[in-house]
Design a protein around this nucleic acid. Structure first.
Lengths: 339, 339
DNA sequence: TTGAAAGCGCTAACAG
DNA sequence: CTGTTAGCGCTTTCAA
């Protein structure tokens, strides 16, 4: 049982291969009856065009690579779905590549993507280098990069940047409106670019809301629950105690929240807390966490759209886009207690 | 800047295309100097063989599709990594396909995989049908199916079955050894085949360990934390109260555990609890959960290996394999209290 | 309105 | 030991 080819269809329908091709692709007018004959032959034989043969001539595979750090990281779940959604609706399929935070592995994956002649790759792993992008580009495959602070990527490829300012400002404004004046911040490890960006956004937001960033109490977390615990210990020693705390991510915020409750504090009465990420868990803890939400699904969709854009329209050049974060108010923030 | 082809290399090296092909693939002997010339030409031109052209002649794409229900489901994370690991080490790339628990979408994804001429597809989504497998097979692409109880799949394709008996028996034996005689069970919705299988394994394990399954107290959960909460309410009303409880999955067990603690019970002193899945959270709750662990990474690796096996060796026919579950003893189980 | 034929980039007989 | 040539299955001029 061998493959049914366009030649088989042509013979069966008593026409030429090119006619068959044209009815399939609707790429030139075909007399109604001949078209019908062709369609019938296709049906009877159960013919399906070979994507490979098509790719060989069109130089397009309708496939893309998605480079991420780790499928287990909840950040990526919705991103992946967003990517997949627009990919599927455009006839694209996507190769999933986990770097496991390993640059060598990342490069290997990139090479295998190039070998497969993907039309483009979405760089979403923080474990990536400019070299990877260059390698991809050198092999005529397009790239869209989620901005992790690599200098100069925007010269090479389309980039997508997450703007933390908007959400962070909303958060600080929200707290100030609730009467908070002493707002603490739990940062991530400042060796990470993202932690830096988020902290900067916080300082910025303070300034914009009439608070002196220099006076803000900065605690050191590690982006995990446990870092939030530790930050709470620092918090206790601070005088005066901030009435509200903003954390670099939800896990940190939750760690702080749990530690505070363990210590007998009542939230949000004794202290308000704001997270960042809006992970699933955020709405499930008690009290549900007010948090700065990343539009993860949108990031996925947008990135894939940008890729399609540049594939279909290389002439238009690289695009740089931004997605905004936004505040989700739940119950972990409240009006500051009267003294 | 157009693609460098094998012809370019041949010209530059002053040999024929076939010679170039043969040095690349090491598929026939080539005089040392000519080989060197070819290699040099390849280097100078930065030539990379076109996977597409190769696929067209070899009828192999070195790609596979992985059909899952939902990337957000933690079950899949390690599975995906296992699949990817063996795929990568064999030069394969894998298309990730999320059905989102939707059969229509699943079929669409399958079609797109067929269009891409994948060599095989891994059916790991519980939202799948025999028709999907047949569709794939009809188009000469191989299939490996994670066993979700679809009758007759093993006739069509290689299957991988998770054997819950082993782990469940170990669990019950463990509890019996600790002196437990009254063991309750929190099942999932029995409309789900997997819930059924797990419950059967529990009954079986009871019988094997000299307990009367008919007397076991069965509570109804929903595979989520909240179902564990509700099950605890039932548990309280039971007379005599079981001294140990086995749950259909970890989330349920954790729900039960939290509810018990809320109610003032001390675990594992007042009641022992065993989960199933060994999710991340299991080792992080207090007390860390004793649980029946699924070899997720192994499932991924094995499935991909089986796929490669059947691709490389269709003559050998479909294989049916099983992976065993095993007990991970932590601190949520203890000797039954003296009366 | 349709067909013939060249060619996408590679592999693998078949010759020599 | 190496080259010639015929495809793999499709699209797309060019001609009719």
């Amino acid at each position: 049982m061998k493959r049914v080819t366009i030649t088989d269809v042509a013979q069966r329908a008593g026409v030429s291969k090119s006619t068959v091709s044209h009815v399939i692709n609707e790429t030139r007018f075909v007399e109604v009856d001949t078209r019908l004959k062709v369609l019938q032959a296709i049906g009877e034989l159960g013919y399906r065009p070979s994507g490979i043969a098509r790719s060989l001539v069109s130089q397009r595979t309708r496939t893309a690579g998605l480079l991420i750090s780790d499928v287990g990281n909840p950040f990526y779940h919705e991103v992946i779905m967003g990517v997949e959604e627009v990919a599927l609706s455009h006839g694209y399929s996507v190769f999933l590549c986990n770097t496991n935070y390993d640059l060598d592995r990342g490069m290997k994956l990139i090479q295998s993507l190039i070998d497969k002649s993907v039309d483009g790759v979405l760089f979403m792993s923080s474990s990536m280098t400019i070299e990877m992008v260059q390698e991809v580009l050198k092999n005529q495959v397009y790239a869209v990069v989620l901005d992790w602070g690599n200098a100069g990527v925007d010269q090479l490829a389309s980039t997508l940047t997450i703007n933390f300012d908007k959400g962070t400002q909303d958060a600080v404004r929200h707290l100030v409106a609730l009467g908070h004046r002493e707002i603490g911040y739990i940062s991530g490890p400042l060796s990470l670019w993202t932690a830096q960006v988020r902290k900067d956004a916080f300082f910025c937001a303070c300034a914009e809301n009439g608070l002196d960033p220099e006076r803000a109490f900065i605690m050191q977390g590690n982006l995990r629950v446990e870092g939030g615990h530790r930050a709470f210990d620092d918090y206790l020693k601070r005088e005066p105690r901030p009435t509200a705390v903003v954390a670099a991510n939800d896990l940190t915020a939750i760690g702080f929240l749990l530690a505070a409750q363990d210590h007998g504090l009542s939230l949000p009465r004794d202290v308000s807390i704001v997270g960042l990420d809006d992970i699933d868990l955020a709405s499930r803890v008690t009290p549900p966490l007010t948090t700065i939400s990343l539009p993860r699904y949108e990031i996925g969709m947008l990135a894939m759209q940008m890729l399609l854009e540049i594939i279909d329209n290389p002439a238009r050049g690289n695009q740089q886009q931004e997605v905004a974060t936004s505040l989700v108010v739940r119950e972990s923030t409240a009006r500051v207690a009267e003294v």
